[in-house]
Design a binder for these strands. Structure first.
Lengths: 133, 133
DNA sequence: TCTTGACCCTATAGTTGCTACAGAGTGCAT
DNA sequence: ATGCACTCTGTAGCAACTATAGGGTCAAGA
């Protein structure tokens, strides 16, 4: 029972990943190449499913592909200290916080520009004016 | 005096844009093609400077290239109502707000995962665990 | 048995907004 | 006259996929 195999479509459905994306992950070496059937179809095992789930979760949390690659290789070295994992996660968190701050500044500026628009003609539009030199 | 001309490098410095980026904007039709000198150098006028400043400002505010293109063409039609301008700006603001919300959700999740890490070995790392299926 | 339709295969090009070469020409100052 | 900073064109690369073309495979129904 531990030997069930999946087609790429099965794997796609199970992990909510597109088929092309799975092939892409294989091409860039994130997901190991699976066996092939007689008809040259990819044939995945449970370990592929696990690995792809890991990738998806990490990607959903916004980790970059290279970070995911590092996390995957760390997750295989089970008796090493987890500081490296922590470092990647914290770096990513800091990045997210920086992006939030940037976007909040943007929102303020954009909001104040929009608020000034009296919606007359473009000649008197404050939005265009704010963009003009 | 209204007839000073600039090299691409001058324009780059004045607008804090890279030279290659200016050529890129020309290639995609965002910035009109300038005259050329005898030596085939681009020769820009004040109107180019104005237009590039507009582009830079809009890009700094996070508008996509296609939105900038629309804003530019609207800004030339001075006696039309400015609702279209307003629509582009509001659409962009909504997008920014959506991104902020997404990133805040991400930050919460990431933060709570990191908080759980006791920094032992990877085998017991909560971060890896949170990613694993 | 044949055929339909859903699936799978590879390879290549497109997306966004630039950035980075390579290899060549221009222009000004010393 | 020669060095150096600047400019030119064209092409390829980045992230992280997505789309398209042009085929092959497989299970089920008529």
């Amino acid at each position: 029972m531990a030997h069930e195999n999946f087609t790429i479509g099965d794997l796609a459905k199970a992990t909510e990943t597109k088929v092309v994306t799975i092939r892409y992950y294989e091409r860039i070496g994130l997901l190991p190449e699976p066996e092939r059937t007689a008809g040259n179809y990819r044939s995945y095992s449970a370990s592929h499913l696990g690995r792809l789930s890991f990738i998806r979760r990490a990607r959903d949390l916004g980790f970059a592909i290279e970070q995911v690659r590092d996390l995957l290789s760390l997750s295989d070295q089970r008796d090493r200290p987890c500081e490296a994992v922590d470092a990647i996660a914290c770096e990513h968190l800091a990045e997210v916080e920086r992006k939030i701050a940037d976007l909040q500044a943007l929102r303020r500026e954009l909001g104040s520009i929009i608020d000034q628009c009296g919606c007359g003609t473009i000649a008197e539009c404050r939005i265009i004016e704010a963009l003009s030199p």
